[in-house]
Structures are given as C-alpha cells and as structure tokens.
Write a protein that binds this DNA or RNA. Structure first.
Lengths: 238, 238
DNA sequence: GACGATAGGTGTACGTCGTACACTTGTCAA
DNA sequence: TTGACAAGTGTACGACGTACACCTATCGTC
C-alpha cells in the first residue's frame, strides 16, 4: 500500500478521493492543469495509479462534473413553480461560479451522466408539478438549455462590451470600428458592488435572462399555448 | 519552393489556404482531427510549414472561426428589427449546422476576434436602428448570448429526452428513474420531416427559444422598460 | 549576369500528454 | 500458511504543439 515517505500513513486512494482532488486542482489551477500526471502528483501517487479508480480521463471529467452538480441545492416543495425554478437555477449558478471550469467540461461531454439526468429530471418535475403541460415543458427545457445549470450564455468571459482597461487609442478605434458595441458599452454606469471583470453586473444580466424566459413561459401557459397551434408558415412560432 | 512529387506544380500555401483546408478537414473529420500534423498532411506539407502562416494552433482555430462567421449573411436594411434579427440569427444557424465543430471552438476561445466583434456590432446596430434603447439592447445581448451565432443552448447533442434507440429495459429504467424526463419525452409525436438525431424538431426548438426572447424584449420595449426601474429586492428583475 | 535579402518549406528534437501492459506489494479469507 | 485479489509502480509508445537551425527558390538592385 502506498505510504508517505515521511512515515505518515497515507490513506488509500478511492474514486471519491480522486474526483475531489481533481475538482480542487481545477478550482485553483484551472482546467488546463488537469492531466493524469499532474493530478497524480497532488495525490502523491504515480500516474497509472489513477486508472485503478477511473477508467480514463473522460470518465474522470464526467466524475468531476457529477461532484459539482451534486453541490446544487436539492429541490424544495415550493408552491410557485416559477419561484422554485428560479431559486434552483440561481443555486446552480452559485455552484458554477465556484467551479468556472465546469462549463467547458460539460460542453465537451458526449452524453449526460445519470447525475445530470437526475438534476434535469427534477427541474422538469418542478415545471410539471406547477401545472405546465408536458408539451410546453419540453420546449421550455430546450429553450432554457444550459441555463438550468446556471450557465451564462456568453461565449467570452470578457464581454465585447467591456470598456475596462482600454487605452484611449484603443477606445477610439473601438468607437470607430464598432459603433454599436461602443454605444451599448457606454450606455450604463454599472453597479460597482457586484461587478465582474467585464464591467457588467453579471448577476443582473443572468437574472434578466432567466426572467425573460420564465415570464414568457408563464404567459404562454396562461393562454393555454400548445405547439400544435402554430402555423409553420408564420414568421414566429409562438 | 514546394513542388508535388508527381511533377505537378503545387501552389504555395497562404494563410487563407491553410484556414480553408482546416475548415474543410474539421467539417469532414471532426474537430479532433485538427492537429498541426494532420492538417499539414492534407496540404502535402511538413507540419512546421504551417507556422509560416499561422502563429500557433490557437490562432489557427481563431482563423477557422473567422472563416465560418464570414459565411453568415450580411445584414439587410430591414424596417422591422425583430424580423431582421430573427433572419440574421437563423442564417447564422444554418452556417453553424454546416460546421458543427465551430461551437466548441468558440466556447474555448479566450477572446473574440475582430470578425466576431464586427458581427456582434452589426446585430447590436440592428436593435438600435429599431428604436430600442442602448440600455435595453445591452441586457438583450447578454440574454441572447451565443444564440446570436445560431447556437442551440443544449449541452448534449443527444438530448436527454430522446427516446430513440432505447431497449425496452432501458426505457423501463428511464421511466422509473427519471419520470419527469420520460413524461416530457413521451409527450409529443415529432414531425418526422425535420428531425435530428435527438428525435426532436431542432429547428422548431431553436425558433421557439429565440421567439420567446424576442417577444419578451418587444414587450419590454413597448412598456418603456428601463433597468433603473426595477427594485433589486424584487424576486424578478423585470 | 551577379548577388544578397527574404519568404517559404524542411528536419530534428524536446517536453507533455493519455494510457497499454507487465510487475510488485500489501491485505485478508480460508 | 497460502493464495487470491485489490492497489500502486515502472517502463514504454505514439501523438501532440512547437522551438530552432537549416535549406532553397525568388526577386529587386546594381
């Protein structure tokens, strides 16, 4: 069995210990630090030792995601489906902010793990319990997409609208080359208290997005919308 | 200069030729086929030759994305902002369906290229020209996120709601373990004419998503919504 | 026509990666 | 005591990105 050189007893590896160490390493050193070799080092073990607990790197990454998804608050029996979903998603969001690498890993995943399916299932059941039709819920889940995991839909963390850290020359160039972006970037003084690097209040933007969707869904539900209603020749599907 | 062994004259490489070959290779062999070595092979050249035209692999990938984004239809002078944005996004979507690997590349990108900024800018200007306030446009762009590039927001191509290719045992297990998913998956017979692997009408789901957002935005605009209106203690931000 | 600069293609080499495979070693049931 | 089994080790291979030194064809200048 593995023992530390300094005489201390090293507890044996386990799948769980491997996954937790990997999550911790990714949290502090970023996703690019996750290699079987580097991870094994942090566990004081030889690279191949990991393969006794994890089939390959892909399974390692899947397991890391399961750990992260497991941190999302469980559903609570909530009378109002909108508030319930909203709280759940915002809880997911705080988890994903703790593990910023998780998004890229999930996006590269070939298929959802059972843990992910279970989370998705519980969100769906919240909608159904709120009285939404299965048909409507289907479309809503597609429309929400990865937002249910608390992911912003931005592609680039440093938003193109970020006016931060621009030299006057760069700013002038932006103004000339991308007048729309410039106009929008200048449009609002941001709340200095809850700001991320981009200079935007990310929390506000996120809530704006999910509220836009959830309010729209509520309106569809109220008017008894059904996907078979719509005329496929219409410009809009709603 | 490089010449083909068979006596035929080989036209010299160029950044453009490299990028186009890379896009073609990714289209037919997938993103994992994109390595400097394999790409150089398809160009009949030694790996290091590519570095005379592209600084490194990251720049190669950026360039590939620029090629793809360049395929999106330019904006047309459209009186109705909603229809204009809708058409533009749907055009982007058909481009991205041709290059399914583009999404992952863009998501891994550190920063937007000028080409991406130019496209983003033109979408913003469409909104502004339609009379939306810069403030509203700001939030809308965040809310739309990567949807403006025509990306579905799904994490996994094979949606968890896909009932296809399940053995009866698997189906029974799904029903028991994930009743919500099962209920939603069973809820609607899909249009067999425009179906992707998932068994869902992806085109419909995509349009449902953007229409949900654009309709919501139109409503906010009509009632003169302003981000400074809302009370930050409210449950909803709208 | 000669010639040096330069752009474009080559060859070799290094460090990193995931992981196959054969091995030792510690533990425990019989 | 044994011997099966789970856990950790060591070596090795092929793929990757790319640094660096090297050729070589082309062309403007004299």
């Amino acid at each position: 069995m593995a023992k530390a050189d300094d005489g201390g007893q090293r507890q044996p590896l386990s799948r769980d210990r491997v996954l937790r160490a990997a999550v911790a390493l990714a949290d502090e050193a970023g996703l690019e630090a996750i290699s079987m070799r580097k991870l094994s080092q942090t566990l004081g073990v030889v690279p191949m030792a990991l393969y006794k607990h994890v089939a390959n790197k892909e399974e390692l990454l899947d397991g890391m995601i399961d750990v992260v998804v497991g941190e999302i608050e469980p559903a609570m029996g909530d009378s109002d489906w909108k508030a319930a979903v909203r709280r759940r998603i915002l809880s997911a969001r705080t988890v994903m902010l703790r593990h910023p690498w998780a998004r890229r890993v999930m996006e590269a995943q070939a298929a959802p793990t059972p843990v992910i399916l279970a989370y998705t299932d519980s969100v769906i059941r919240t909608f159904l319990a709120g009285g939404l039709s299965a048909d409507l819920v289907h479309h809503v889940m597609h429309a929400l997409g990865s937002r249910i995991f608390g992911f912003t839909q931005e592609l680039h963390e440093t938003a193109p609208t970020a006016p931060a850290d621009l030299t006057p020359e760069q700013a002038a160039y932006m103004m000339a080359a991308f007048p729309g972006i410039a106009a929008v970037a200048m449009s609002r003084p941001h709340d200095p208290n809850s700001v991320v690097g981009s200079g935007c209040d990310d929390e506000f933007e996120f809530e704006f997005g999910i509220d836009l969707m959830l309010d729209g869904v509520e309106r569809l539900q109220r008017k008894g919308w059904d996907s078979s209603d719509h005329d496929r020749e219409d410009a809009s599907v709603l």
